[in-house]
Amino acid sequence: MNRRQAAGICSRILVLASATIVIAILAFIICEVVGRGAGSLTWQLISTTPSYLNGTIGILPDIANTIYLLLFSLVLALPIGVISAIYLTEYAHPGKIESCIEFAIETLSGIPSIIYGLVGMLVFCQLFNFKTSLAAGACTLAIMNIPTVIRTVQESLKTVPQSYREGALALGSGKGHTIWTVVLPNAIDGIMSGCILSAGRVTSESAALLFTAGFAHSLVPLSEALSSPGASLSVALYVYAKEQGEFGVAFAIAIMLLIITFLINLAAMMIAKAKKKQI
């Protein structure tokens, strides 16, 4: 009996400790990043471009590049992902092609980003002759994000009540029309969370971008962004920390990335909450 009690207490402590470790890790990361980066996170850093003449560093170009990458990759991944999800949930019947597609989606979501970066370089930079550019980076990120978009939209399509579809069909609406007018408007939350999750991956990605989008720090307007190389915030963090030893700047960028991570989680939570309320 004594041994049993001791074992019970021990396992309880271990389980509690594990959970505490998780919280502690997060707390440590936040403290460390904020503590080391807050001093360097100045308005000047955020609002300028790096200047060799003055010897100053600015991350405005990296912020702009992140936004460009986000926009371009979503423009590609969102339609493909949503259409694929519609096909898989609304049209596909179980068969060889469908299991092939399922397998492909599983595989895509398991491939490490460094391999995406490598193949992205071979295909987009060299074969398609995009050179090292935001276009090549965005295409690579888009392919990485398609599985995420497909899965979230699929989940959401499945929660649209079948009675909506039946109601529309019984009124003589065609299948495509039914999906467009009744099903898709009710799966908007899934499309939004697909966007948000993709946004999270785009901002945090670095390995896939190193060889496709490069690490230039020059500010370019939207019209030229596709053809110019550029570092995203995450890539810039890596370059400043690893290659240039600018740890203050790296931690300042880390603060921004952490804030983005928080916001993304918050947005995802709010969407989930709104959906719950609706049901």
């Binding site: 009675s163 909506y164 039946e166 109601g167 529309a168 069909l169 019984a170 009124l171 003589g172």
Partner: peptide, 17 residues
């Protein structure tokens, strides 16, 4: 779709959009 235009349906559970 032509058939269902001629033959309408009301379901067991009300299913307004």
């Amino acid at each position: 779709t032509d058939l269902r235009k001629e033959i309408g349906m009301v379901f067991q559970k009300p299913n307004p959009f």
